[in-house]
């Protein structure tokens, strides 16, 4: 069986920006694949090329075994896809039901309106105008319009950006149900926790290229350590230990000094933290912050690019 998404050597440049600079990608059947990266990394251009909405300058694209050749072929392919675009604003003055019914009419095979509203949990908003919905509800409606065709392959471009945590979890559930029914998903996001939670595999993009590819677990493991210890000192940097002293502490794999805190990538928290506390005590430095977390894809991105995702 051919993979639902295959692309090779993809490149696209706009007037003065290279959006995608040579990208190869394979997404397997029933997989949830995440394209991660900061704004401007080329995620949206990539997904829109795969969706057949943007023509690449170079490269091959094969979706569900078909190419974007135009005409009847393209229409047949579109019948099998569900697409949610990043910045679509659905008509404010139509109701939820009317909007779904409109999108439904474009497809041969489709869910009933009841079914698809049930899938995204919008049954109660059926007669509400789209303009009156909350951000999360609008986003679920956009996903409903993508799901109405019973797609084999679902494209989601930043489906949860700007949503509150509860709305985000509701959308994750929608995606989970689609996958449980056997669907394949390609999504973009700049929330690393979302990618870790949802995706079987992720590709981290920066400047139009894939800089890391693998399961979230393997990417995090590539840091060589599973934990991150962050600390900050109350009385500034005067008595702070320097980087080489910190690196010499037991279990510490890497040291990153940030603006307001220092982060240590650590293999064994139970050895590194007491050692750190001991070092600081000998210096007479007082802690204003000490936190540890499991290493995340965010830490992977930082270690690969030296930049934080949010301000990249």
């Amino acid at each position: 069986m051919t993979p639902p998404i295959l692309c090779a050597g993809l490149a696209k440049r706009y007037a003065d920006v290279v959006a995608v600079a040579g990208l190869d990608l394979t997404v397997n059947a029933r997989e949830c694949f995440g394209l991660l990266g900061p704004n401007g990394a080329g995620k949206t251009t990539t997904i829109e090329i795969l969706e057949g909405l943007t023509a690449p300058d170079r490269g091959e694209v094969e979706i569900l075994g078909m190419a974007w050749t135009g005409g009847a072929n393209t229409r047949a392919l579109r019948e099998r896809l569900g697409i949610q675009l990043q910045d679509t604003q659905l008509a404010d003055k139509l109701t939820v039901e009317e909007t779904v019914r409109l999108f439904r009419s474009f497809y041969r095979a489709s869910h009933s309106v009841e079914e698809v509203l049930g899938l995204v949990g919008l049954e109660e908003k059926r007669t509400a105008w789209v303009g009156k919905l909350s951000g999360g509800q609008k986003q679920r409606l956009a996903v409903a319009c993508a799901l109405v065709s019973r797609p084999e392959l679902l494209f989601l471009d930043e489906p949860t950006t700007g949503l509150d945590p509860q709305s985000r979890r509701q959308l994750w559930d929608v995606i989970g149900r689609f996958r449980a029914a056997g669907g394949t998903v390609l999504l973009t996001t700049h929330y690393m926790e979302e990618a870790e939670r949802l995706c079987d595999r992720v590709a981290i993009m920066d400047h139009g290229k894939i800089i890391a590819l693998g399961t979230p677990r393997s990417l995090i493991a590539s840091l060589g350590a599973e934990h991150v210890v962050e600390f900050a000192l109350a009385d500034g940097a005067t008595r702070a230990p320097n980087a080489s002293e910190l690196a010499a502490l037991p279990g510490v794999r890497a040291v990153r000094a940030g603006l307001d805190r220092t982060a240590l990538t650590v293999a064994e928290v139970h050895r590194a933290v007491p050692a750190l506390l001991g070092l600081l005590e000998r210096r007479g430095a007082e802690l204003s912050l000490l936190a540890t977390h499991h290493a995340t894809l965010e830490d992977v991105f930082v270690s690969l690019t030296g930049r934080q995702l949010r301000d990249a």
Partner: peptide, 14 residues
């Protein structure tokens, strides 16, 4: 401007 046209283009609509 609302990208609705583009969204329609992503469906098999004629």
């Amino acid at each position: 401007t609302k990208k609705l046209l583009k969204r329609f283009m992503a469906t098999p609509m004629r």
